[in-house]
Design a binder for these strands. Sequence first.
DNA 1: TTGCTTTCCGAAAACGGTTTCGTAAATAAA
DNA 2: TTTATTTACGAAACCGTTTTCGGAAAGCAA
Lengths: 334, 334
Amino acid sequence: MSTTIKMIAHKLSLSVATVSKALADSHEISKETKLLVSNAAQEMGYVRNPYASSLRKGRSKTIAIVIPEIADSFFAEAINGIEEVALLQGYHVLIYLTHESLLREQAILQDFRSGRVDGILMSVSEETNDTEHIKTLMESQVPVVFFDRVCEELNTTCVVTDDFESSFIATNHLISKGCSKIAFMGNSINLAINRNRVNGYIEALKQNGLSDYQNVVICGKDKEISQQIFADLLSGPERPDGMILSVEKLSAMLYQICEDMMIDIPSQLKVLTFTNFNMAQFLSPSLTTVKQPAFQMGKVAATALLRKLSFNNTLAEPETVILPSVITFRKSTS
Amino acid sequence: MSTTIKMIAHKLSLSVATVSKALADSHEISKETKLLVSNAAQEMGYVRNPYASSLRKGRSKTIAIVIPEIADSFFAEAINGIEEVALLQGYHVLIYLTHESLLREQAILQDFRSGRVDGILMSVSEETNDTEHIKTLMESQVPVVFFDRVCEELNTTCVVTDDFESSFIATNHLISKGCSKIAFMGNSINLAINRNRVNGYIEALKQNGLSDYQNVVICGKDKEISQQIFADLLSGPERPDGMILSVEKLSAMLYQICEDMMIDIPSQLKVLTFTNFNMAQFLSPSLTTVKQPAFQMGKVAATALLRKLSFNNTLAEPETVILPSVITFRKSTS
DNA sequence: TTGCTTTCCGAAAACGGTTTCGTAAATAAA
DNA sequence: TTTATTTACGAAACCGTTTTCGGAAAGCAA
């Protein structure tokens, strides 16, 4: 049985109201009483019951992270950033994985209508083509801040990278290295992030008169299917000589397939990946990457959300923060 | 304003007690009433307030993961496993990072005495040489299950890998490849996991008469210091010809340093890492790894914790589950 | 008929805080 | 001096749910 305010009140012959206010450092309470109370609380090992507090105050001091997966260096780093600012402001962090399933995403957000969390940081799933569940939540005054995989049609704060530009530069880089058949391997076209990257890719092709070979491939979340897609593409008649991988996980897959099919990177196929992991330079061949500022994005998104919360969600000027990615050219595209 | 039980009760001219029991599928309520209530709840968009519920029931249906860091493929995968079983049993998951700081760890566990979580999954920090805070929590009936970085002296369920054996085999492997000066790069000696690995290393040296060069190096959490330690070691008079990296992050660091110092792996230095990340085979040179079953460990640990919770923490037969690691030999030790 | 279970529901007391409002005493202003 | 204001605290309502307990109505047995 843990100590309650009532027990402190009893011990000091004070009322629970006084103890509560003293612990909240209210101006209604004298310095002497505050000292008395905080000493007693200390020695009795008092810890405020967060659920009683949340119930009465209608705020939980808790936020949720809703992301497709966690075993991905981008999201892992982003969480790191989020946790840092949450901790600083005394917020707790619940984590939910959608595993790229719209159904799960809907179920998770549905639960949030209970007041479990004060706000949400989110990267939508691949399947999210319907945003009704998010809209519903926002309408019931639960602030949502998107990062990385945003919903552009929803009027709220978004933290993204310069996906169009990065993809544009990446494609141009491949072209400058002599590629003329560049394939773009992305995930769902539902995702704005993917659309932007695709557009950057297409624009670069267009500007270089290479639109003949415009090849946007959708790799779903299923590993086997993706592998098959890769194998078909690489053994087909119109084999690409350059590839942009929009999804980190595809890198390992492609390296494996190229090894199996005896396709040399970069002489036969140049590869470039949007990824966040830090051993790209030690791969064989070292991998050209577009690295997103994951940690920073997490921090910025969390800061924006907590600001909304502290302003009680008024003054909610939805903004879009664009943080620059860093492209590092390595052997895989040399 | 979200719908409450009271609103449902009012609409149906029932009492809140009846509605609550109907929603809980109590036998005290007739089938007809249950149907009435669940229909009304559905159409009014009712979601149970978890904090009111937790307050009254004294259980939160929430567990906490307390780990040193998240941007580490082991922990990321482990969380994945944890989340899977938590979701299945309707538990919510709070995440806390200690960043290898005992102080943070203590502060986090202190908060848990509030009843915020029903149980805890934990990997202790490097600095954790004092376990009083964990003991205190366990004494107040909050079950703790350790995974990976366990506290052997605490009498509770632990999920680990065969660290001694893995390290023993790894060391023998290096020896069989001709190494005679093998260094072991670990983190804090506070950690049982590290002690076990060190012991496996020492035992292998002993059995091969190589104890003359017994070199256990402690790399802390500070990156710069670790780098300096590496540099000193590799430029010193007694340069090792083999290295066991007990920490994933050290791999990238070592590859970089070897590149800078023009030390060839594996001809001049053979390297083997305890890691979980899935691109080891594509590194240059490909990296020999001891891979822990992170996802499985997360699942097992979470399952054990939730079983304790469902049994109300009685029948708490503390057990130690040992899951086997997989060693894969690659070029870095060839 | 009376007595005894079931069945089904409601009143009310929790759970542990927070907040409103009232008030006595002390202080300041007139 | 009287009156207004400030200071410091307590009583009680409240947040939304769960649970205990009591009881009316109905069914069954004697």
